[in-house]
Design a protein around this nucleic acid. Structure first.
Lengths: 115, 115
DNA sequence: TTTCGTTATGTTTTTAAAAGTATAACGCAA
DNA sequence: TTGCGTTATACTTTTAAAAACATAACGAAA
């Protein structure tokens, strides 16, 4: 595809997200958090990996779960390892589909943008 | 196009913008500001229409002009009406092309999102 | 029945962004 | 040559977001 925008080294960039009731419930950062929770089985580990506080991560998870009214993450405290967190099947489904959308979006950016 | 994302009334939304040196220089809000400046010939009027302070509008214009290193807006003070602001041909070209991108992007959202 | 690492929350502090205030400079027109 | 409405810019205040801090609850395992 040819680039018409004339002068300097522009780069097209952007973001997409899902809304429920006009409110953002899932975007690129939150999906990454969910993925890391899925992989590590731990909110704390996911938070550390993303260099955010546990509190912030927990707040996000909480917000996501509330937003969807059906939880994407289930967590328990106590026991072996201190506690655990994991994605529900619904949660897994949602992130897969969101990432597909994201792939399409990246393709869109590549086709229309310029480095 | 069929919607696969299963459960609730999701809505896909997003934003695109232009970057120069990894920095956002033009997005949806700024383009609207430029359009209103173009129509009214006045930064102040454009700011009022968009319910922002003159200062904020001026700062944005300033930032845009600096980002592109070639001005999109030229302004003068004093004289009839107190002063004036207008888009350069380059500025006009840029907003036209950005709005074309935006149209494509809206089409993308419509094709992939769900109300 | 104590230790441990995590989940779960509330509270406070810090930081950054936005909004507001103030004022100078300008040049046409009366 | 004064008044007017706007551009231009600095400075202060307010607001909102993020970070930091503190602490309780939990349950497996030792």
């Amino acid at each position: 595809m040819t680039q018409t925008m004339s002068i300097p080294p522009f780069k097209l960039n952007g973001r997409i997200w899902l809304e429920i009731d006009e409110e953002k419930v899932l975007g690129h950062g939150r999906v990454e958090l969910l993925e890391r929770i899925h992989e590590s089985g731990s909110i704390r580990q996911a938070a550390l990996q993303m260099k955010m506080s546990y509190k912030q991560a927990w707040d996000l998870v909480n917000h996501i779960n509330n937003g969807f009214k059906q939880p994407l993450v289930i967590s328990k405290r106590g026991g072996k390892g201190g506690g655990i967190a994991l994605l529900t099947p619904f949660g897994q489904e949602v992130i897969v589909e969101f990432k597909e959308l994201q792939q399409k979006f990246f393709r869109f950016l590549d086709e229309n943008g310029r480095k």
